[in-house]
Amino acid sequence: MTGRPGFLTGETMETVTNPHSRSSPTADQTYEISISRLLPGDSPRTAQSTAHIQALAAVQVPLPPIIVHRASMRVIDGVHRLVAAQLRGDETIEVTFFDGDERDAFVLAVRLNSAHGLPLTLADRKAAAQRVIGYHPDWSDRSIAAVVGISDKTVAALRRRSDAAPPFERLGRDGHYHPRDRVDGRLRASELLAQNPHASISEVARAAGISATTAKDVRGRMRRGENPVPNRHHARVAAVRRAARAERPTVDRSAVVQRLRSDPSLRYSETGRTLLRRLNGPGADPAEWELLARNIPGHCIQAIAELARMCAEDWQRFAAVVDSRSATIR
């Protein structure tokens, strides 16, 4: 073991594998170990450069230590330096150990290879981004782009072709989770502002997981009596809701209610009749709901939206109670 400070330990693992960290690995401890103990790493680089290896082999000053995954002894960063050492006939090499798991080791390899030394090819960067998306689907496009060294638009395109399940929230470079769907963040902000109109923009933005600019826009829209969600988002929201409805089996609501109304056990009891009256409530089709929503006065929008959510929550709780009773009967 050398006395010279090294590169990386488990304590600094988070600073180099989290997408929102821009810090470099901190100095700690290096080790002189036998080259024969090392194994090829899971490198984001598909090909080595012979010219780069020969150039490194000719360097007379000590090269930086290579990074090795302690658990597997696989090289994370420094393959060219390792081959150059072998070419010179060296039997040992200076290393710094990394104590994360194998996925973190790959992310670190991508980050380091993107930041220094021989640049990764665009194909290597895209392939690496695809793997990082699979490992960390909750990381934002910008976070992954910062690690891999490509644009966030390229990451977004790769994500669309990925099999990774889209998360509800993503971890941004600021270290905070943000709603994947900005519509949800705007709605959260509108609820917070309805409860506390004097709340600061920064407080609303932080609580709703949106930017201060978006929170300011929501406040302005509410003061003008407008919908907190801009019109351009409505088509996307409608598409998501249509997809959700398509996944559920189609039920003829009126037919079900009519069948229940003819059931004597419900018709001839007070609780049964109360339940039927509530079940026979508004069952408007989507077009009718849209018409109702468009004609709500601006100053009533938030109050009605809140009441609608409360009604939905009441029915959800009632459904859970009924489901639990059904399970008990079975």
Rank of each mutant, 00 (worst) to 15 (best):
143 S>R: 07
60 Q>F: 01
133 I>Y: 07
219 R>P: 05
93 I>W: 05
76 I>T: 11
191 E>P: 01
324 S>Q: 12
297 P>V: 00
20 H>A: 15
240 V>Y: 09
274 T>S: 12
77 D>Y: 08
44 P>D: 09
114 S>W: 05
112 L>E: 15
309 R>C: 11
94 E>T: 14
290 E>Y: 03
227 N>D: 15
189 A>F: 00
259 R>N: 14
118 L>S: 13
25 P>H: 03
131 R>P: 04
207 A>W: 00
105 A>N: 06
88 R>H: 04
158 L>S: 05
290 E>K: 10
193 L>Y: 10
272 G>N: 06
1 M>H: 10
147 V>D: 00
187 L>T: 00
151 S>Q: 06
323 D>N: 13
274 T>L: 13
129 A>F: 07
154 T>R: 09
82 L>F: 11
170 R>P: 00
229 V>W: 11
52 H>G: 01
239 A>D: 14
150 I>S: 05
237 V>G: 09
62 P>E: 07
148 V>R: 09
210 I>K: 00
162 S>R: 07
21 S>E: 11
303 A>R: 12
268 Y>D: 15
84 A>Q: 08
321 V>R: 11
32 E>G: 02
80 H>K: 12
190 S>V: 09
112 L>P: 05
34 S>R: 06
294 R>P: 00
147 V>A: 02
239 A>E: 15
179 P>S: 09
229 V>I: 14
291 L>W: 09
242 R>V: 06
323 D>E: 13
13 M>N: 14
330 R>F: 04
285 D>I: 12
106 F>P: 05
245 R>G: 03
36 S>M: 05
315 W>I: 13
299 H>V: 04
117 G>A: 08
317 R>E: 13
110 V>S: 03
106 F>S: 10
152 D>E: 09
298 G>P: 04
83 V>S: 06
168 F>V: 06
78 G>L: 06
310 M>P: 00
21 S>V: 02
152 D>T: 02
310 M>W: 08
303 A>Y: 10
214 T>H: 02
241 R>E: 12
300 C>G: 04
260 L>W: 08
259 R>A: 15
265 S>W: 06
276 L>T: 01
294 R>H: 05
192 L>C: 08
93 I>D: 02
321 V>T: 09
197 P>Q: 02
308 A>Y: 05
102 E>H: 11
207 A>P: 03
183 V>K: 00
113 N>K: 09
136 H>Q: 15
193 L>Q: 01
291 L>K: 07
34 S>M: 08
96 T>S: 15
77 D>Q: 08
59 V>P: 02
208 A>R: 00
158 L>A: 12
145 A>W: 07
106 F>N: 13
109 A>F: 01
184 D>M: 08
141 D>P: 05
115 A>Y: 03
309 R>Y: 08
255 A>K: 13
173 R>M: 11
153 K>R: 14
318 F>N: 12
206 R>F: 08
2 T>C: 07
